[in-house]
């Protein structure tokens, strides 16, 4: 474990050195996500100037939900973005074989190979939204609530990673796994808003099947003292379960991997 942690640190340093060579692109990468998120948030702001609440959630409460999922997503974006490109970039070009001959876990190598700077923008946006919402809502933070925020965001991040891991394994058979990953990943867009605005079927889907709700709605409900908030304590279990499935499935896929011959 310590070996892997120090290895990750070395990978990260190398990556940062490379990124700093192109400083302008680094900053643009991080700000591009801020611009996109800014557009969506501006739209929510405009709408909520006109109505007092979204199904009983006021503007700042909606921002809390949006902020928490953006933070969780940023963890996936910064540290596991290579799950998107494993098929297109590594397997198709044959670069993946490099990971298999090294004396470290191939999955670890894949993830450590590229820290994605664009995710920093999401982290900043998410943090700013949570801070803004909690100041305007006058939330008094107890240690338990701080713990819940951390648990929610980190478990949420692992839920994102695990779902991308499970779907990216398909690249061992079909090379380009991006459409399959997108199919599942895009469902997180539902969870940017309180799940209570959707029909029952969708909120069940986002809770028990593609559980992005645990990366947003449930932790936010806990922090805002709403019903169902206590369900948020389940999120680490869900994240651990999905990671377990994901890793086993990854190993299963790896056994079938035969390269593309390039």
């Amino acid at each position: 474990m310590t070996r892997y942690m120090s290895l990750y640190w070395l990978f990260l340093l190398q990556r940062l050195k490379a990124l700093m060579e192109y400083r302008a692109s680094f900053i643009l990468g991080a700000t591009s996500t801020i611009i996109w998120q800014g557009s969506s948030i501006a739209a929510v702001w405009v709408v909520m100037q006109n109505v007092p609440s979204l199904n009983g959630w006021n503007y700042d409460e909606v921002l809390m939900v949006y902020g928490i999922i953006t933070l969780a997503k940023s963890i996936n974006h910064m540290f596991a973005d290579n799950l998107w490109t494993v098929g297109r970039v590594y397997i198709r070009a044959g670069g993946f074989d490099r990971f298999l001959v090294r004396p470290i876990d191939p999955l670890f190598h894949l993830l450590a190979d590229r820290f994605c700077q664009d995710g920093v923008g999401n982290f900043i946006v998410g943090l700013a939204l949570v801070v803004k919402a909690s100041v305007d809502l006058d939330i008094t933070w107890t240690p338990l609530m701080v713990a819940m925020l951390a648990v929610g965001v980190i478990s949420g991040g692992f839920i994102f990673i695990a779902l991308n891991l499970i779907t990216c394994v398909s690249s061992f058979w079909i090379i380009d796994s991006v459409p399959i990953t997108r199919l599942v990943f895009d469902n997180h867009l539902f969870a940017q808003y309180p799940l209570s605005i959707y029909p029952k079927a969708i909120s069940i889907l986002l809770t028990w099947v593609i559980p992005y709700g645990f990366a947003s709605f449930y932790p936010a409900s806990y922090l805002l003292g709403r019903e169902m908030g206590n369900l948020a304590w389940v999120s680490p279990l869900i994240a651990a379960f999905l990671m377990f499935i994901g890793y086993r499935f990854w190993q299963f896929g790896l056994k079938y991997y035969s390269g593309t011959g390039s």
Partner: peptide, 15 residues
Amino acid sequence: ISMSILYFFWNAVYA
């Protein structure tokens, strides 16, 4: 997915 979100979001706005 995108259209569902737009649809249910705006329904909630008009609730």
